[in-house]
Design a protein around this nucleic acid. Structure first.
Length: 466
RNA sequence: UCCCGGAUAGCUCAGCGGUAGAGCAAGUGACUGUUAAUCACUGGGUCGCAGGUUCGAUCCCUGCUCCGGGAGCCA
């Protein structure tokens, strides 16, 4: 007798007539006076449940089987047979059902065989993986992560694990979470009354990273093609369906590359990931298409099939000005694009993914490369219909004198970035990269509308339960 | 953080100035293989918290807490 997954059982992989054992959690039970009960069992290996046909002749039928409710953990032995009923090709004619873990109080078990709101499920985040939706999200999230690593591996990239704790006091925009072992109730003070961070764990102020970019540039300028994929932290008081305080980010960095190479990489990565998910997650994607957001599959297929349009920022502004639309935020050269502008560009003007390139230098970060026109920097955003900005990236300023000028212009002290400046002093080359929010990508692929529902345990302002 | 909206049974919601209802879930029973089975019955609620108005508040008013949508910030 061999133990098989529900996925394998449903596919009949063991062969008709095989004696198998399945292990999982009960979803529903239906009884028939014909002397049998039907028990639907799920083990997370796939979207579907396997149906156990349990005869009343089993010794524990009345004592245990008839009391199985949603959430009970069981093991069952039985024969794999073709189903007499509709709805599944194979089922298991049970010869034994063992209750492994019961449910204390079925009435208050939160996960019932019915539709729950996402808001409620967030309050029971430790139990929501037992639902169809969160099982599917978990499997697709895994597949996307694997697809990302596979794409980079096949294209000669190395995964670099940049630090989560950083002492860079200004990696870029974004509020930082402080990391400290000082006693908050009894802070050490210097003579002038300021907190003495020399006594802190790292001997200086430390934070959780908001980006691995600056650290990964070092490896880019030695291994040529690298990427980070890890947790990232922002202490901003953002309360939206698109923001988390703790999220995962993918940041590739390529040497001997300009902004066009960067845009090409972004397009190739997204297409490769979408194609992998379409190939590998058909059942789960169908579930999302049916129950979560109509058209998610077609959206992915179109992304794979069409080339991304590339649009200069200046041309985007002209198009917006000529659109005849009345935007809440006025459009003019030098202003950053608002959500409403990005949506018009990608959804109405172009109708498919668009890469907006070369933004005014005053609205972008200090490390972005100044273009020859002296007015713009080599920055790009990838905008997609239905989600807006999915990727932000740039060619980095590789010329030391320009970098110093931009640091000063942004109020930064170049000497505080000596290690970062070193890259420009020793073997500097043109290089570029971008950041891709992992959860935003998962949300886009699944059609889930709130980013808190595509990460196992969402951290947001005021919320770090579980 | 700002602007809207919300909080009533385990869940999803309706309702009303005179201390509450449905569906689902749960329990019991009926039903010759069912598909979120169906049908009947039963149990289940300090109507978010704290004040105020009122003879009387779950309902009206104020504050607070939490949740959702939109905006900003961004990934």
């Amino acid at each position: 007798m061999s133990s098989v997954s529900v996925k394998s059982a449903l596919a009949g992989s063991a062969g008709e007539g095989a004696v198998v054992t399945v292990k999982g959690w009960v979803r529903t039970r239906r009884d028939s006076k014909a002397g049998i009960s039907f028990v639907q069992v799920n083990d997370g290996s796939c979207q579907g449940n396997v149906q156990l046909v349990v005869p009343a002749t089993l010794a524990n039928y009345t004592s245990e089987v008839l009391h199985l409710t949603a959430g009970c953990a069981i093991e069952a032995d039985g024969t794999l047979v073709r189903s007499q009923g509709q709805g599944q090709a194979f089922e298991i004619q049970a010869s034994a059902v063992r209750l492994i873990g019961g449910v204390d109080d079925p009435e208050t078990y939160p996960i019932q065989p019915k539709a729950h709101s996402y808001e409620f499920l967030r309050e029971v985040a430790h139990l929501r993986p037992r639902t169809n939706t969160f099982g599917a999200v978990t499997r697709v999230r895994h597949t996307i992560a694997q697809a990302i690593h596979r794409f980079f591996d096949q294209n000669g990239f190395y995964w670099v694990n940049t630090p989560i704790i950083t002492a860079s006091d200004c990696e870029g925009a974004g509020q930082l979470f402080r990391v400290s072992t000082l006693d908050l109730a009894n802070l050490p003070r210097s003579d002038s009354g300021e907190i003495d961070f020399a006594q802190d764990f790292f001997g200086k102020e430390a934070y959780l990273t908001v980006s691995g970019q600056l650290a990964v540039e070092a490896y880019c300028l030695a291994l040529s093609k690298v990427y980070t994929f890890g947790p990232t932290f922002r202490a901003e008081n953002s309360n939206t369906p698109r923001h988390l305080a703790e999220f995962w980010m993918i940041e590739p960095e390529i040497a001997f590359a300009d902004l066009n190479d960067d845009a090409s990489l972004a397009e190739a990565l997204l297409k490769s990931v979408f194609k992998d998910v379409l190939d590998r997650c058909g059942e789960d994607l169908k579930f999302f298409d049916d129950r979560v957001l109509k058209g998610v599959i077609a959206r992915l297929e179109q992304m794979v099939a069409n080339d991304f349009v590339r649009l200069e920022y200046g041309d985007a502004i002209k198009a917006l000005e000529k659109s005849g639309k009345s935007f809440e935020f006025p459009v003019h050269w030098g202003a950053d694009l608002q959500t409403e502008h990005e949506r018009w560009l990608t959804e109405e003007h172009v109708g498919r993914p668009v890469v907006v390139m070369n933004y005014p230098e005053q609205i972008k970060a200090f490390y972005m490369r100044l273009n020859d026109d002296g007015k713009t920097v080599a920055a790009m955003d990838v905008l997609a219909p239905g989600i807006g900005e999915i990727i932000g990236g740039s060619q980095r300023e590789e010329r030391l004198d320009y970098l110093d000028k931009r640091m000063i212009q942004f109020g930064l002290e170049p000497h505080a970035y000596q290690w970062y400046r070193d890259f420009r002093r020793y073997g500097s080359v043109p290089h570029a990269g971008f950041g891709l929010g992992f959860e935003r990508l998962v949300a886009y692929v699944t059609g889930m509308s709130n980013i808190r529902d595509v990460i196992p345990y969402p951290r947001t302002p005021g919320n770090a339960a579980f």
